[in-house]
Write a protein that binds this DNA or RNA. Sequence first.
DNA 1: TTACCTCGAGCTCA
DNA 2: CTCGAGGTAA
Length: 690
Amino acid sequence: MVILDMVSEKIIEERLKALRSTIALHDFHYYVQDAPIIPDADYDVLFRTLQQLEQQYPHLITPDSPTQRVGAPPLKVFTRLTHQTPMLSLTNAFTEDEAIAFDKRIREALNVDQVNYAVEPKFDGLAVSLVYTNGILTNGATRGDGYTGEDITLNLRTIPSIPLRLQTASAINQFEVRGEVVMLKADFEHLNEQQRNKGEKLFVNPRNAAAGSLRQLDSNITAARKLTFFAYDAVLSHKNQPLFSKHSAILDYLKSQQFLVAQQSGMTTGVAGLLAYYHEMSTLRLSLPYEIDGVVYKVDNLTQQETLGYVSRAPRFAVAHKFPAQEASTKLLAIEIQVGRTGALTPVARLAPVFVGGVTVTNATLHNEDEVQRKQIMIGDTVIVRRAGDVIPEVVAVILEQRPAHAQPFIMPDHCPACGSKAARLPGEAVTRCTGGLYCPAQRKQAIWHFASRRALDIDGLGEKLIDQLIDCELVHTPADLYKLNIDTLAGLERMAEKSARNLVTAIEHSKRTTLPRFIYALGIRHIGEATAKALANQTSDLDRLMTLNIEQLQQIPDVGPVVAQSIADFFSEAHNREVIRQLLSSGLQWEVANHDAQQLAQTNSAVSGKTFVLTGTLPTMTRDQAKIKIEQQGGKVTSSVSSATSYVVAGSDPGSKYTKAIELSIPVLDEDQLLSLLQNISIDAQQGN
DNA sequence: TTACCTCGAGCTCA
DNA sequence: CTCGAGGTAA
């Protein structure tokens, strides 16, 4: 009997296996090849047969079964997943000249006349990584910061163009596929039509629809959205010898494993080939089934790729050549004045909504008075607005021919629109400032917001709207007034019933335990950011003493020059400010007094102490904040801009202009490993051999 | 900067 | 059902 069961079960198992691979094959033809080879009805029969059989023999269900794409219960939260190999981002080229320069750099570095390139469209979607263990899809994650992303395995499993198992599992036991999840234009239109019929909110563009669908905690909702995965790279996390010698071979392999690879991917030679491809794709752009925002060029030969290596963890062998930013014209309805925390008055263009670069733009900063004059902008003008990807919208120019007769010139107000105080522009400065100080409600609101912000006293739940109300109802004038709030005074405000009021009071209470640097930073003294606040706290650890220092004494503090010293002295000489501090302390604000001597000792002994660091880009294993803490623990300083006073620039992936600046000033650039070594007192010179 | 998801909690109306 | 706050991605 038992033997018979085993035999029949063996047969069932074989049958299940056959059904699964047949269905997977048809999925491939349907979703990847876009050319089904059997009628839908026949497919349904196969699928139902499999479902029924699995229902009968639930213990024979495998995770790679096509029936297992959906049905998991919703998650509570997304957990984070660390990428085995960082997901780097590409450097961008915005002009043909930059593309030409890319090719030139490559040829010179490789010392060859001509280079073979793999070229492909740059999808406008979400980058994800898929990990196959022994041929089975086990993990999928968003790109995140490049090092850790969110675990969206369950959502990715629902995407039909993602194979749940590889065709040839044996070759590689751990295999990572990278690509982009997009929503095809047609599927996007269809989804929005559905949303419209259901009276639900429309998605603004395919990328956001795809992002929104992937962010669902309930993968069943994701499954209902039609998403498509395009593979464009594979990583072997193995230490054994490379299985491929060319990028194009990787793509061929991916195709053989039934991944969808963009049809427009191809090969070309030399810079002429690159530019020809760029033009070809910009012509094809509108007719493609998915959205793209440029093209990608990669050196095809993997050995050459390796030779070229990485610039602070962005590959030197590849570049994204972006299409020009999209532009649209619209009416400039008004120029409003925004009052910043320091009283800076910034003109902001209010625009008639225009859809440009995939989003609706309604306002754009005009920076300052001179900018408005330079561009000859008048209220009522028709202007050209530009937006590219994640770039902040910008008023490019005025269409002078379309200027209406009633167009009004912009005049920088000489009084603050929020409080009526005089506004002044100091000679040599670009900004106009409200002189009202904390008398000005707009500045007061920002002061409170700054005080409560995460990096300052971190009062949870005290958001913008609430601050508006507190100031407008005159419940709060200074940060000290926050600590006088109680459930009764809060009650009656909008969206403030008992529960919210209690939560806020608790959060405020919680903020009383803080640190001196946070407190100094929270005061919002001009020119005092986090770094200087720490320097000050380090110097005195005694607020009372700090308050009495004169300008000369203040300048003795490292990092404090005449401007900063003046600003600090001015702040503390205001009776009003001293009173606020007194009130804050008497309402119970407190911090640990750091043990100075011990710290000082550690600092002088470290290779890092007294050195000034600038962090840029994303580091592989820590956040910039964590790196900052580590450096500061050993007496180093972390600042935000590169100058000749900078000792080291620590660059992660996707570094900003600080990296370029470092090269210009020939300041040593470290990666995370080198920083960590330095923190362990291993000299960089020894590492670099010079 | 914009868009989207999620959560807690308040508001509205039955 | 709607709003505000907080977080993420490009």
